[in-house]
Design a protein around this nucleic acid. Sequence first.
DNA 1: GCTTTATATAACAATTTGCTTATATACTAG
DNA 2: CTAGTATATAAGCAAATTGTTATATAAAGC
Lengths: 114, 114
Amino acid sequence: MTETAALSTEKLTETLKILHDPTRLLLMKLLIEKEYCVCELVDMFEVSQPAISQHLRKYKKAGLVYEERRGQWRYYRFNETCEQHALVEKILGQLDENDEQLVKLRTKAESITC
Amino acid sequence: MTETAALSTEKLTETLKILHDPTRLLLMKLLIEKEYCVCELVDMFEVSQPAISQHLRKYKKAGLVYEERRGQWRYYRFNETCEQHALVEKILGQLDENDEQLVKLRTKAESITC
DNA sequence: GCTTTATATAACAATTTGCTTATATACTAG
DNA sequence: CTAGTATATAAGCAAATTGTTATATAAAGC
């Protein structure tokens, strides 16, 4: 299990602010499991490409994800060494694995090739 | 330790939205430990009485707190039977006990009589 | 070089948030 | 009944949020 970090009020609320949006919460649920490139995420979520990029930028700014360029693609994945690691894991661990939106996303994920 | 509940994306994000505000996060940190009446909270936090009432209303609407009238006072406390119980405990458990704002609040709490 | 593809950034609109001040409600004490 | 205290609610406002469309940037292939 993840160890517990002691976060400041500021850091803690900043992280909750990032995860409180449904799109970003589900995005993080995916990124914590494996890396994705932006175009895969755009195909999975029902929002525009700029919207996805903007969400990812927030994550990156908060130190929650890594970005890696490979060719013309940019891959994003969860930063397991971040200070908020334990918090994020605990929050996402509360999400119902059978949640309709999550299940739908995972189904889409299977059929996507970028 | 608290057991884990499976929350929907909606319920989970709703709860994060409530806790992402610094005032409300700290408010909940207090309410999870013991009950407070509104005037005690007003004295402790540096916001107006209506601001506190409005925060408490959000909590109540989300089922996170109980409200009990006794005389002219209204006492609020955490609702331990709510669906989001485990989530809230886990989030608040990540807050540094030595966090400046929290310590300051606890100090004030000691000297307040309503 | 030009074109296509992947992604980021800018600019903007609609909505939501979190406070404030002003006011209403309700209980208590005389 | 009246005055005071505790609390809620309403109205208004500035700032933040989240999406959109339009445009810029950068790599890949010809």
